[in-house]
Simulated scan of single mutants.
Amino acid sequence: MSKWTTADIPDQTGRRFVVTGANSGLGAETAKALAKAGATVTLACRNVNKAQPVAAEIGPNATVAQLDLADLASVRTFADSCDGADVLINNAGVMAIPMRRTADGFEMQMGTNHLGHFALTALLLPKIADRVVTLSSSMHQIGRIDLDDLNWEARRYRRWRAYGDSKMANLMFGKELAERLAAAGSSTSSMIAHPGYAATELQGRSETVEDVFMKFGNKIFAQSAAEGALPTLYAATSPDATNGTFYGPTEMFGSRGAPGVSGYHKRADDAGVRDKLWTMSEQLTKTDFVV
Rank of each mutant, 00 (worst) to 15 (best):
G14L: 13
P231H: 05
F106E: 00
K215V: 02
H265N: 15
L67K: 01
A271K: 15
G272Q: 12
F246R: 06
A222L: 07
L43Q: 09
A85D: 06
K175M: 15
L120W: 04
V87A: 05
G111R: 06
K127N: 06
Y163L: 14
T250R: 01
G228Y: 08
V64I: 08
A178K: 03
V261T: 13
G21F: 00
L69A: 05
T237W: 10
M172C: 09
E201H: 12
A73F: 11
V291Q: 06
V212C: 05
H194V: 06
L181P: 06
N170F: 01
M214W: 07
R16M: 10
Q12F: 11
S187I: 09
G164M: 06
T232D: 03
D211C: 09
T42E: 14
C45Q: 12
N90T: 04
T250L: 03
S262K: 11
F78C: 13
D240A: 15
P53R: 04
T102S: 11
L88H: 08
P60I: 08
T63S: 15
Y234H: 00
F246L: 08
N170L: 03
I128R: 00
A96G: 00
A37Y: 12
A154V: 08
T121N: 06
K175I: 09
A79R: 02
T42N: 11
L43P: 02
I97H: 05
D148A: 06
G196Q: 06
R144E: 12
P249A: 10
M108Y: 07
I58F: 12
R156H: 01
N47P: 05
I142A: 03
N47Q: 08
N90P: 07
S206E: 14
N90I: 10
Q141T: 13
